[in-house]
Design a protein around this nucleic acid. Structure first.
Lengths: 363, 363
DNA sequence: CTGAAAGCGCTAACAT
DNA sequence: ATGTTAGCGCTTTCAG
């Protein structure tokens, strides 16, 4: 029998070292070990070194599960996100994960079953004791609100908003973006406008539409023709098809996001042989990756992804460190990325760092 | 003093109910509550009902953190994934998350800092006590292997393989896919072939290249010209540029994945005015979302995403339920999705369900 | 079938 | 600065 096998259970392989094991080897108490791994704990350098040495030998790593049981902080953020075929979201997810991990949080992903309610997802999040929730898609039931408030976990919405006073939201300026696009299209001399909506219950789509429609009216261009793409590629393609098959074809269509705008370009070009940007103008919203690809050259309202993510993380951490703090409703300004998918207005274009944008001429 | 406030701490809001609270209200022991929430535990229907009722009243939810401390199962799977701008990965992630949640597991996402080693990521995964790891990108250091083995947590690679005997991997048939593409291109009458590699240390890129190159030689087409796109859109674009600027232009290029192939199409069409599929053939690998978009019509070796994900989940769960089981090395067959980006061979095409594929004529 | 009691690995008073 | 003690909320023997 090996001399050091005191009371090791007859398991396969060496047990995972605990703080006790480290304490024994270092000749200190278990709490000393805990302190050695706690930033700012009062411990002498010698003890810390002894512990570090023993820990290294044993390959010890603090068990975060045990820690969170007592500190009541799991350092895990639940992120609800579906619809990852829309390039905007994977980028957002990656950025969120990186930003949170910088602050010591990990992201637990909740995608939800395709058509299901968000309630089972909420249930899982709550059981797993996530410290906070960031929701970047899925529409939340009203239960969500109260359950999270009861559980005392902050909820931050990204790219959507809600009426609830207790839920923070970070969006870009959807209304202003819609209005800017209306002005841009009007300045470009378009007369027959169309709008392609996302989901009817999406605040984001609503805001963009409102901004667009109101500004259009202000420019004396009446009400745009309206189709619904449900944020889905195939649905958007179908919607575009109906738009282009109608007797009076629009000369410009604003799609509530890039994913649908890309579908629209595909249909216009491949099925109707239209030269996008000359025979028809298509504008999107997001500035997701493929928008900038040369074959698309999609003119779109650019949502500042990094800035939005920073705000999300800031809002989350703020409520985490002070639970009594108010929910915020942050609107991050974006800008119009002008490329080739829409006819250009004669004036107002600016180029900086190789990027072209447009601002309405001063009134 | 309210009659029922026995010893509640003077906190804000109602405390989150624990099994003890439920037990008290139901008039049973705390272990009875535990049993009521454990499938297959021996408990009478009456007790179960009493507990359920009390739990409902209190909004009780078992605390998974506490549970996992004692069961040593967190029911959390760590998924390491970066490079989400390649559409294949977000889809994979979504599918993984759904498949795992069906089996009672949640996914914790690890993206890693852009250029950093995978070691700090590993550290976090271990501290969080994930039950298993699935790695869909990032190259793992050798430490990874031994650390995970020590910690007793299974590692499953998706879309890459490794030499280690203890690590499972699920890939599609990269070699065969490369070979099939070579045969397809040869049959299409192409003479000047080129290959665009991903990362040099990527087993996936290597396998695809090997299959391609060997088959090409067998068809008497010599060694293809070789460029490196590093799986990156801009790098791939640059590589394509150099290919098309060279004195002898290739008439077909096989890119190690769709993301690069899409970049190649962009450059060929937008910068060189080439009609892709007639003046030059471009073939990819993955069949990621945009490949099927009409404007691209990318001919590509389709990796069966759902099947691969099912295999990943199966391999993970197998090792979880029997830690002594062997690591597997599964190769899932794919098929050639023939579209318009490459010139068609005169024979061998088959259409089924609106999808076109190609098989080499029998020898 | 049920309750009492012993911990899972750790942090946080509280003494010293 | 350090050790002792008491749990965090739960599962799991072990008696009965």
């Amino acid at each position: 029998m090996a001399p050091r096998s005191i009371s090791r259970a007859a398991e396969a392989g060496p047990r995972i070292a605990t703080a006790h094991d480290v304490a024994r080897l270092a000749g200190v108490s278990q709490s000393a070990v805990s302190r050695a791994f706690t930033a700012g704990a009062s411990i002498s350098p010698e003890t810390r070194d002894k512990v570090a040495e023993a820990a290294r030998k044993l390959g010890y790593r603090p068990n975060l599960v045990a820690r969170s049981l007592i500190t009541r902080r799991s350092h895990v953020i639940g992120v609800a996100m579906a619809y990852l075929e829309n390039q905007f979201y994977p980028r957002a997810l990656e950025a969120l994960s990186q930003a949170f991990s910088t602050r010591g949080y990990q992201v637990m992903l909740f995608t939800g079953k395709p058509g299901a309610s968000s309630d089972p997802m909420l249930e899982e999040m709550l059981r797993h004791k996530v410290d906070a929730l960031v929701m970047a898609s899925a529409s939340l039931s009203s239960r969500f609100d109260v359950e999270c408030q009861n559980a005392g976990i902050p909820v931050v919405l990204m790219n959507r908003r809600t009426e609830s006073r207790s839920i923070s939201s970070i969006t870009s300026d959807n209304r202003q973006g819609g209005a800017l696009i209306a002005a841009f299209l009007a300045a470009g001399g378009h007369r027959h406008l169309a709008f392609m909506a996302g989901s009817e219950n999406s605040s984001t789509s609503q805001d963009r539409e409102e901004g667009f429609t109101h500004a259009l009216a202000a420019h004396g261009l009446g009400t745009p023709r309206r189709v619904v793409g449900l944020y889905d590629f195939d649905q958007a393609a179908a919607a575009m098809r109906s738009l282009l098959s109608a007797p009076e074809r629009p000369d410009a269509v604003f799609c509530a996001n890039d994913h649908m705008a890309l579908a629209a370009i595909n249909v216009a070009r491949a099925e109707f042989g239209l030269e996008v940007g000359r025979e028809i103008s298509i504008v999107g919203f997001d500035d997701a990756g493929p928008a900038a690809w040369p074959v698309f050259g999609l003119t779109t309202y650019a949502q500042p992804l990094r800035a939005m993510v920073e705000e999300v993380v800031a809002a989350t951490c703020a409520r985490l460190s002070d639970p009594t703090s108010q929910a915020v409703r942050t609107i991050v300004p974006g800008w119009l990325a002008v490329r080739s998918s829409a006819r250009l207005p004669p004036v107002g274009l600016t180029v900086r760092d190789g990027l072209t944008t447009w601002m309405p001429p001063e009134v």
